[in-house]
Nucleic acid binder design. Structure first.
Length: 124
DNA sequence: CTGATGACTATAG
DNA sequence: CCTATAGCCATCA
């Protein structure tokens, strides 16, 4: 039984992660770590990456709005998935500058997060 | 149980 | 800015 609960917990975490990502609005991006934090995970950036990796094709989850904390895509520059994600972001007006996104400009900042992500230094 | 892995991140040089 | 390193943590062999 404990094993079953463990599985439920694992799925609950994944569900929370995907729910957070679904809340990221078009034209904005969020980092893996940011999504993890909003999903209630501690140091769970890698778990977010895992959840996206196992995401079925055709999902309603906007996986492409998730990037690394430095504004780079998680895929190797120039790779097929890298181009794919770049294209999806461009459709929403999120453009890459020298292969990276200016996080200070595009990062999603949910209301309650304002005090946690100190946007003060974000708006040049 | 141990060690390797990876759609991560913060820090140091 | 970049590379190297060390944490981090669920999964898997």
């Amino acid at each position: 039984m404990s094993k079953l609960l463990e599985k439920d917990e694992r799925e609950a975490r994944t569900r929370r992660i995907l729910d957070v990502i679904r809340d990221v609005p078009a034209g904005c991006v969020a980092s893996y770590g940011q999504v993890a934090a909003l999903a209630g995970l501690n140091n769970g950036a890698r778990q977010v990456g895992r959840a996206l990796r196992e995401l079925p094709a055709g999902s309603d989850v906007p996986w492409y709005r998730i990037v690394t904390a430095s504004g780079r895509l998680a895929f190797a520059v120039g790779s097929a998935p890298w181009h794919h994600q770049t294209k999806k972001l461009a459709q929403e007006g999120v453009v890459l500058k020298d292969q990276r996104i200016e996080m200070q400009h595009y990062r999603w900042q949910p209301d309650l997060d304002e005090i946690l992500w100190k946007p003060s230094a974000a708006w040049d």
